[in-house]
C-alpha cells in the first residue's frame, strides 16, 4: 500500500518535471492567458456597468472571476490535454500495450500523472496571469485562511472531475481508434458548461440550475464561488461534496470503461 502511494507520488512528480521542460510554451501560454484575461475583464466591466448585480456578482467579483477562469483553463485542462491525451495517443499507436502489461493500475497511473501536470500548470499558467490581473485590477480575495483551504481542496477536485471526463473521452479511442471527434464535442460542452465563456450564474432561469448540476460546473464555477465567498458555511460543504460526488461517479465510470476496453483488447484482440 505504502509503496503504491509512493509510486503515484513519483509519477506525479515526474509528470510535473516533464511539463516544466517546455519553458517557451509556458511563457507563451502565460502571455496568452494574460491577454485574454484583459479582454474578458473589459467585457465583464461593460456588462456589469449595465447591470451591477448580474448573477449576484458585483463588478469586482466579475473581474476576479475572469482571472480565475484564465488561471483554471490549463490547470483543469478545460478543453482537453494533459495525461489523458497521452493515453489517446498511445491507444492510436498501440503503445498502450506497454501500459497494459505493467503491474500497475492504468487509471491510477494516469490520474497521478495528470495531477502532477495540473500542479505545474497551477503554479505557472494559473498563478502568473492571476498576479498580472491583480496588478491591473482590484480583485476580491478569499476572506480568511479557511477559505483558502476550501479553495485549494476545490481546485484539486476540479482537476479530478475534469480528469474523469477527459479520461472517458480518451478511452473512446479504444473503440473509435481516434478520439478527435469526441474530443472536439467534449471541448464545446466543457467550454460552455464550465462557465468559462459566460459565468453559469448568468444563465437564465432553470438553465442555470441545470448547468450548475453538471460535472463541468466543478471546473470553474464551484471553485470561483468558494474563492469569492458566495458559498458560506454548509454551502461550502455542499459545493465540495458536489465535486466529490462527480469525482467518484466519473472515476467509477472510467474504471468500468477501462475494464471493458481491457477485455476488448485482450479477449477480442482489437
Amino acid at each position: 500500500m505504502r509503496s503504491t502511494v509512493s509510486l503515484w507520488f513519483a509519477v506525479a512528480h515526474r509528470s510535473f518535471r516533464r511539463y516544466s521542460t517546455y519553458r517557451a510554451a509556458t511563457f507563451a501560454g502565460i502571455f496568452t492567458n494574460s491577454v485574454f484575461g484583459l479582454i474578458i475583464s473589459f467585457t465583464y466591466i461593460a456588462v456589469w456597468k449595465q447591470n451591477p448585480t448580474a448573477g449576484g456578482y458585483d463588478v469586482a467579483d466579475a473581474v476576479t472571476y475572469a482571472w480565475l477562469g484564465q488561471a483554471m483553463i490549463m490547470t483543469v485542462a478545460v478543453w482537453s490535454g494533459g495525461a489523458t491525451d497521452d493515453l489517446a495517443a498511445r491507444i492510436k499507436t498501440g503503445d498502450v500495450a506497454i501500459d497494459l502489461y505493467r503491474p500497475v493500475s492504468l487509471l491510477g497511473w494516469y490520474l497521478a500523472s495528470d495531477l502532477g501536470r495540473a500542479g505545474y500548470h497551477l503554479l505557472t499558467r494559473g498563478l502568473a496571469p492571476m498576479i498580472f490581473g491583480a496588478l491591473v485590477f482590484d480583485l476580491h480575495y478569499p476572506a480568511n485562511a479557511l477559505v483558502w483551504v476550501h479553495f485549494a481542496v476545490s481546485v484539486v477536485l476540479a482537476v479530478t472531475v475534469s480528469f474523469g471526463v477527459r479520461m472517458l473521452v480518451s478511452a473512446s479511442a479504444f473503440w473509435l481508434l481516434d478520439d478527435t471527434g469526441v474530443k472536439h464535442l467534449a471541448a464545446v460542452f466543457a467550454m460552455f458548461f464550465s462557465g468559462l465563456a459566460v459565468p453559469l450564474v448568468l444563465f437564465p432561469g432553470w438553465t442555470s440550475d441545470v448547468a450548475q448540476a453538471l460535472p463541468w460546473a466543478s471546473y470553474l464555477q464551484v471553485p470561483a464561488d468558494i474563492w469569492l465567498g458566495k458559498d458560506q458555511g454548509a454551502d461550502v460543504l455542499a459545493a465540495v461534496g458536489f465535486q466529490v460526488l462527480w469525482t467518484v461517479v466519473l472515476l467509477l465510470a472510467c474504471h468500468l470503461v477501462l475494464a471493458r476496453a481491457n477485455r476488448k483488447v485482450v479477449v477480442q484482440g482489437g
Binding site: 509503496s3 509512493s6 509510486l7 513519483a10 509519477v11 515526474r14 518535471r17 516533464r18 521542460t21 499507436t93 498501440g94 503503445d95 500495450a97 506497454i98 502489461y101 505493467r102 503491474p103 500497475v104
Partner: peptide, 28 residues
C-alpha cells in the same frame, strides 16, 4: 521483461535515470 524494437517502454520527456527510477517503483 519485454523489449519492442519499434516502441519504447521509457518515458519520452524524462531523463533515462528517471525512467529507471519509475520502473524500480513499478516492479518494487
Amino acid at each position: 521483461g519485454v523489449v519492442f524494437g519499434q516502441r519504447t517502454t521509457l518515458w519520452w520527456d524524462l531523463p533515462l535515470r528517471d525512467s529507471y527510477d519509475l520502473l524500480r517503483r513499478i516492479y518494487r
